[in-house]
Simulated assay, not measured.
Amino acid sequence: MNASPVGRPTRGTTGVNRLRRVDRWIARHPVLRRAGDPLVVDLGFGASAVTPLELHARLRRVRADVEVLGLEIDPDRVARARAQAAGMPGVGFALGGFEVPVPRGRRPAIIRAMNVLRQYDEADVANAWGRMCGRLDADGILVEGTCDEIGRVVTWIEVGADAVPRTLTVSLRLDVLDAPSIAAERLPKALIHRNVPGEGVHAFLTALDQEWARASAVAPFGPVHRWRTAVGAMRDAGWPVREPGRWRLGEVTVDWSAVAPRG
Rank of each mutant, 00 (worst) to 15 (best):
K189G: 08
V196W: 01
T229R: 13
H225D: 09
V218C: 09
D236K: 13
S216T: 12
I182N: 05
A213R: 10
P188R: 14
H193T: 15
R186W: 10
A184F: 03
R226T: 00
I182Y: 02
G222N: 06
R235H: 12
E185A: 14
W227G: 05
D209C: 00
L208W: 03
G198M: 11
R194T: 07
G200P: 11
G200T: 08
A233S: 13
L187G: 06
A207S: 14
A230F: 04
W212D: 09
V224N: 06
A215D: 01
A190Q: 15
A183I: 02
H225P: 03
P188T: 05
A230Y: 05
A207V: 07
P223K: 03
E199L: 04
F204M: 06
N195S: 07
T229C: 08
R194L: 06
P197D: 08
A215P: 00
H193N: 13
P197T: 07
A230T: 05
G232S: 12
W227Y: 04
M234G: 04
I192R: 15
I192S: 14
P223L: 01
P188D: 11
A215H: 01
W212P: 10
R214M: 08
D209R: 02
W227S: 05
I192Q: 14
W227M: 05
A183C: 05
H193F: 12
F204S: 02
G198V: 12
V218A: 05
V224G: 07
H193P: 04
L208V: 03
V201F: 03
H202A: 02
H193Y: 13
G222F: 00
W212T: 07
H225N: 08
A207M: 08
R235S: 14
L208S: 09
K189A: 13
A215Y: 00
S216G: 09
A215C: 02
H225E: 12
L187W: 03
R214T: 05
L187R: 01
L187P: 09
D236Y: 06
R186N: 11
R186V: 03
A230D: 09
P223D: 00
S216V: 04
R186A: 03
A184N: 09
V231C: 10
G232V: 04
P220E: 12
P223M: 02
F204I: 01
V196A: 02
S216F: 05
R194N: 11
K189F: 11
G200W: 10
E199W: 07
A215R: 00
G222K: 01
G222Q: 02
